[in-house]
Design a protein around this nucleic acid. Structure first.
Lengths: 250, 250
DNA sequence: CGGTTGATTGAGGCTGCTCAAAAGGTGTGG
DNA sequence: CCACACCTTTTGAGCAGCCTCAATCAACCG
């Protein structure tokens, strides 16, 4: 396989992702490849990063899903973001400051750990890589802005719909969509609530309404979306923000 | 003035900000200086960037305050973030995609516009600059995460307190604090509501309670904070996330 | 002085929360 | 294979935080 983007699911997830944001010459491609040489499997609900950790290593998700979260002392908890294959978490090589959130897996997952110094050195050596990472961070920021809007302005049913639309799009973008257009979400209703600023009780009731109206279906921790399009208009979802893609010509 | 960080308020705001995230050799410093050679004054409530704009130019705020926002067709509106002197907005030089939010000034402000290509070229030429910008983006992301937590989990009075604490800290970090420890916020109650996912009516009532309890004071569009410390404990505010500072030794 | 923007207050209502309990599924050990 | 524990979903009842609508007031401005 000359083109790593054609390699089996998971492997070189980082290169596959960064290739969406820039084109790389061979040395740069090799450099990215060299970063993530080994991966390891972790179980469902495993801790990838715990809050306050000062470890500067960078973790790349190869397969599976994970989430960033912030826990309060009094039991409140907010899920801050979802990670799909290719996504990065950790301090981006910054050793000076502890991370202000934790990361846990949602499903069984495969991750690669990258040494912080090598991560930074590679960027210094290859401006195209630094550039691609910057664009990836811009998309990440756009996603966070969308969450702020979601939490600040939308009603429960709109929030749920918007989150599901985001996930559908991102999974599809990294090659994990299902052929039939529908897809499944491995979030419990309690986790959905933590991501949306709602209680699981309310999430349950709203999901039932959405089911009754034919938008989706769900059973034992798995939500199945039928018509993403209808859901998008309900959520006022515009996928543009997820694709800060590279110009056609580099 | 050999050290630009000692120059008059506003000028070289970008260099002053980036210096918090990395140390630069002379050529790099000159490069940053060269980027933002001219500035212009804009009035209160001026549009710096309008949603959907494909202009790739980067705008640096030198003096004054501004905010990012997203407007809905039906009149709902969410303020997504606040900009203090030194902050950057715009597409970070990405010409391919329209920005998904607007930016307006909150006060009279001085801004510098940077050409997109030069912005990107400078980063390619000076890895230390790219690195500093990356760290600045990491802090920006941390702020956005804090907003997500704020909107998702906190009650109205906690949200207000947290936002005010963030502003107090950031203004102080960029050298715009007031000697007496207190400070003023140029946000109307309506704007506060748009930032916090609350109506201005509710903001008003909660502010009155906070005033009755001695946390702050307000009058004609200006909120004055008395005891930032007390407000911090009310808000469960931890300033650590705002200072991903550079290691002592570069 | 009238117009405009922002703050304030009141009444009433809905969304989403709390507390509690029960039901359904799944995994584990005996 | 059953009993038991645990997790997640589901349902009910009651409540409250925050919203909506509306009107008034205060300050500022041309």
């Amino acid at each position: 396989m000359t083109d790593p983007r054609a390699s089996p699911a998971g492997a070189n997830a980082l290169l596959r992702k960064l290739s969406r944001y820039a084109t790389f010459d061979d040395p740069a491609q090799d450099a990215i490849d060299g970063l993530e040489r080994t991966s390891e499997w972790v179980s469902r609900r495993a801790v990838l990063i715990s809050e306050g950790e000062t470890e500067a290593a960078v973790v790349v998700l190869w397969e599976g899903l994970a989430y960033r979260h912030k826990d309060f002392r009094d039991g409140r908890r907010q899920i801050i973001g979802l990670l799909v294959p290719g996504d990065i978490c950790g301090g981006h090589g910054e050793s000076s400051s502890p991370v202000d959130y934790g990361v846990r897996t949602l499903t069984r997952a495969r991750v690669a750990r990258i040494n912080a110094d090598r991560f930074l050195q590679t960027q210094a050596d290859h401006p195209s890589i630094a550039r691609a990472l910057q664009r990836a961070m811009l998309v990440e920021q756009a996603i966070q802005r969308a969450w702020i809007v979601n939490l600040g302005q939308r009603k429960a049913h709109e929030r749920i719909a918007h989150l599901l639309c985001e996930l559908a799009q991102r999974l599809s973008d990294c090659g994990f969509s299902r052929p039939d257009g529908g897809f499944e979400v491995a979030l419990t209703q309690d986790q959905l609530g933590s991501a949306l600023g709602l209680t699981s009780v309310h999430v349950n009731r709203v999901l039932q309404r959405l089911r009754a109206e034919g938008f989706l279906d769900f059973d034992r921790g798995v939500v199945r979306i039928h018509e993403v399009i209808r859901l998008q208009s309900l959520a006022d979802f515009n996928p543009a923000y997820l694709s800060n893609s590279a110009p056609a010509i580099s």
